[in-house]
């Protein structure tokens, strides 16, 4: 029984759900719920991105591009193509998946810094497209998003969106953990450590990189769509370089190759600026200093460091 609880897929998911309920009950006002929703949406992206970066070892500095495309899918599709708002996120996810699939092979042939550059370039191209095609996207100022309706009911309250975000995050984590503990997950981790040994064992390395890339892109797109529907407004910044970097920082901060670590990374990096605003103009200096300090002293990330500390206490 306790072994069953210690499994990430069971115990971890239960713990995550418990934390979600606790936050809902403890949140003193809607502001905290709003931050929690932002965290949840970022965490969805990070969970997928972690599969790509942490498990498969393939860096991407452009995933905000997919997030942005998803966000604009739920804004643009209903207005310009008459797609119902409820279907738009899924249509967007399919389109983004297809797009990611088309670019994945040539991009993922690249290694290390070259891969970083290529993904960065792709993200920037998406950003420029969203910024400049203003007849569809409203340009740099962004555009309003039609509210989501389910059975004629308008879904706009924080409570509704908190529920939706929690369910979708739990689902993403469950699916991702499933992948990790399967032949697909083993192939991804193997190609991270030794691409050649994986190939020799019969792993079609290119194919598995594509799988991780497309999967993470589609999750990012879905989270982007949800964020647009939730806030009722989209701007190109969502697809920008800084957001891409933030997402990667969340992965590394929480702990590469740790799905729940990524969620912690998302929670810390999303809420930190909210709390740092009290430092007014010193905000950026403090954020930069915290980032450097965490990465220097806890270089494997927050969750692995916490788990190590717990283990040491249990041993002593």
């Amino acid at each position: 029984m306790s072994a069953w609880l210690m499994q990430p897929r069971t115990g971890g998911l239960l713990l995550l759900a418990a934390v979600m309920v606790a936050i809902y009950l403890a949140a003193p006002n809607n502001f905290y719920l709003d931050v929690a929703i932002q965290i949840g949406l970022n965490a969805m992206v990070v969970v997928g991105l972690n599969l790509l970066i942490g498990y498969a070892g393939q860096i991407s500095l452009g995933h905000a591009g997919f997030f942005g495309l998803g966000a604009y899918a739920s804004a643009v599709l209903p207005v310009h193509l008459g797609v119902p708002p409820l279907a738009a996120p899924f249509v967007g996810m399919l389109v983004v998946g297809l797009l990611a699939f088309l670019v994945a092979r040539p991009v993922l042939r690249l290694k290390g810094h070259y891969l970083a550059m290529a993904t960065l370039g792709l993200g920037l191209l998406v950003f420029m497209l969203l910024t400049n095609e203003s007849q569809f996207t409203g340009g740099p100022d962004g555009m309003a998003v039609e509210r989501l309706r389910i059975f004629g009911e308008r879904i706009s309250g924080k409570d509704w969106w908190y529920l939706i975000t929690c369910v979708m995050l739990l689902l993403s984590v469950w699916l991702t953990l499933n992948l990790i503990d399967s032949p697909t997950g083993r192939a991804l981790r193997a190609l991270h450590d030794s691409q050649i040994a994986a190939q020799v064992a019969g792993v079609d390395v290119a194919r598995f990189k594509v799988i991780a890339f497309v999967y993470s892109a589609m999750l990012a797109s879905l989270a982007g769509s949800m964020s647009a529907l939730y806030s009722g407004f989209v701007t190109p910044d969502k697809a920008g370089f800084l957001h891409s970097i933030e997402l990667v920082i969340m992965v590394v901060l929480g702990g590469m190759g740790s799905t729940f670590g990524g969620i912690i990374g998302a929670a810390v990096l999303t809420s930190l600026p909210q709390f740092l605003t009290v430092f007014a103009e010193y905000e950026h200096m403090i954020l930069g200093a915290i980032l450097m300090a965490v990465m220097i002293f806890l270089r494997r990330g927050l969750l692995p460091a916490i788990l190590d500390a717990l283990r040491r206490r249990r041993l002593s």
Binding site: R186, R189, A190, H192, D193, S194, I196, A197, A198, V200, A201, G257
Partner: peptide, 13 residues
């Protein structure tokens, strides 16, 4: 299938 002279192990597994 083959093995390698200077090992190719999946260290983190």
């Amino acid at each position: 299938c083959r093995t390698f002279q200077n090992l190719q192990i999946f260290d983190r597994m």
